[in-house]
């Protein structure tokens, strides 16, 4: 899959450490020092206890497919050679004990679209795009 013509991620001041960790092939989430809640995406304040103290901690790198689309339309001309392609919405296993509220997007890699089903276990794969950017993708676990 050619990724060269896709929109690049534009980290903000809160998310820059997350993208730097992805570049090192580490999947992380924030853990609130006040109440222990894990959160993603990156924000400086906990929306449960409002603490601003947090740490970046390793995520398990596993999850379950919640939903997915198979994109056929060419919405950007530069991606014309990629269609059709799947996009997954994955619930991270790290969130399972706190209401399953940790979600990430990604493409399916190393698997077949026909095998997608709700709850399918998946694991994170790091795909280096170029000298600057790495993306998290997902493949069926095991």
């Amino acid at each position: 899959m050619s990724l060269a013509q896709r929109p690049r991620p534009e980290p903000d001041r809160d998310s820059a450490p997350w993208w730097e960790a992805v570049r090192r092939h580490e999947l992380t989430v924030q853990r609130c020092d006040g109440c222990g809640t894990l959160r993603f995406p990156a924000r400086t304040v906990c929306n449960r206890c409002r603490s601003r103290a947090y740490a970046w901690v390793p995520a398990r790198g596993t999850g379950r497919v919640y939903s997915w689309v198979v994109n056929h339309q060419v919405f950007m001309r530069s991606m014309a050679d990629e269609v059709p392609f799947p996009v997954l919405l994955v619930r991270l296993d790290d969130g399972a004990e706190q209401g399953d509220d940790l979600l990430m997007y990604g493409n399916l890699t190393g698997g077949d679209v026909a095998g997608l089903r709700p709850g399918l276990p998946v694991e994170a794969v790091f795909v280096d795009f170029d000298e600057e950017t790495t993306l998290v993708q997902w493949r069926p676990a095991g």
Binding site: R8, P41, S67, V69
Partner: peptide, 21 residues
């Protein structure tokens, strides 16, 4: 930033995701 690099940013994709759910 968490969506567009995967080719996901247009409204039909977003509504398709939740229609599937």
């Amino acid at each position: 930033q968490y969506q567009a690099p995967y080719g996901y940013f247009a409204p039909p994709q977003q509504f398709a995701m939740f229609a599937r759910a």
